[in-house]
Computed example of a mutant assay.
Amino acid sequence: MRRSPATLAALLVVAGVLCAGLIGLGVWQIERLHWKVALIETVGERVHAAPTPAPGLDRWPQITAESDGYRHIWVSGRYRDDATVFVQAVTERGPGFWAMTPIVSDRGFTVLVNRGFVPDRHAPLVGSARVTGLLRPSEPGGAFLRKNDPAANRWFSRDIAAIAAARRLGPVAPYFIDADAGAPESVPVAGLTVIRFSNNHLVYAMTWFALAAMVAGAAAMLVRSQRRGSA
């Protein structure tokens, strides 16, 4: 079907805009791919690095998941077992709880420590007052379709601010520490941190580029059809 020059021009403009937008999305996914690969490499280096002192109050405002997540740190001090919170968890050992206990550090600040997995809320809590582990950002709000209920002492995520308020801990570090694995018989069972990053950016990029090619191909067919109609 022959179209008027104005209609053809409008269709080609729309195709051009769509093609440019799809290519832009593909390029953005490639950039995200490079960022994700660099993040995975950085986290791998952090996890296996020698532990450094846990960030103190002067560093708290600058801490972010991207710049500090999974950093290997250590802290020493006194556990407050009376303020332990049990957060529901599903691990390779089955369902149970993360035992979250605040530790008052020798440097004068409080930080929550995920001492590890326990099968029930009444499992004994043993361990040293010197902890090494991975820095993890807060998990505010709760889990999927389940909100934390501090009043009922029901926890589905490791929400630092909510736990600190419920246990009246006062100012606490804006991160918690996932404790390193201890002896095989230790309870809680620490060292179960799952480090996994989804990396589908290349697939997404190829999808956007393929769609852009389809739009360009459709535009080319439209032009050829118009020329044949003019012959």
Rank of each mutant, 00 (worst) to 15 (best):
2 R>G: 15
7 T>V: 15
9 A>K: 12
11 L>F: 12
12 L>N: 04
12 L>V: 05
18 L>K: 03
20 A>Y: 00
29 Q>H: 11
31 E>T: 06
36 K>P: 10
39 L>R: 02
44 G>D: 05
47 V>W: 02
50 A>W: 09
52 T>M: 06
59 R>T: 12
60 W>D: 10
61 P>G: 11
63 I>A: 07
64 T>P: 10
65 A>M: 12
66 E>M: 09
67 S>Q: 14
70 Y>G: 09
78 R>S: 13
79 Y>F: 15
81 D>E: 15
82 D>N: 15
85 V>W: 04
86 F>L: 13
89 A>I: 05
91 T>D: 06
93 R>L: 15
99 A>V: 14
100 M>E: 07
102 P>R: 08
103 I>G: 01
105 S>V: 12
113 V>M: 01
114 N>D: 14
115 R>M: 04
116 G>W: 04
116 G>Q: 06
119 P>V: 02
122 H>M: 11
125 L>H: 11
131 V>I: 10
137 P>D: 02
139 E>S: 05
142 G>R: 03
145 L>S: 04
147 K>D: 06
151 A>E: 10
153 N>F: 01
153 N>Y: 01
154 R>Q: 08
155 W>Y: 08
156 F>E: 09
158 R>D: 04
160 I>A: 02
166 A>R: 01
172 V>Q: 02
175 Y>I: 09
178 D>E: 14
180 D>R: 06
181 A>W: 00
181 A>V: 10
189 V>Y: 02
192 L>C: 08
193 T>G: 10
193 T>Q: 06
196 R>C: 00
200 N>V: 11
202 L>F: 08
203 V>E: 07
205 A>R: 06
206 M>A: 15
210 A>K: 07
211 L>T: 07
218 A>I: 07
218 A>P: 09
225 S>N: 13
225 S>Y: 00
227 R>V: 08
228 R>Q: 14
229 G>W: 07
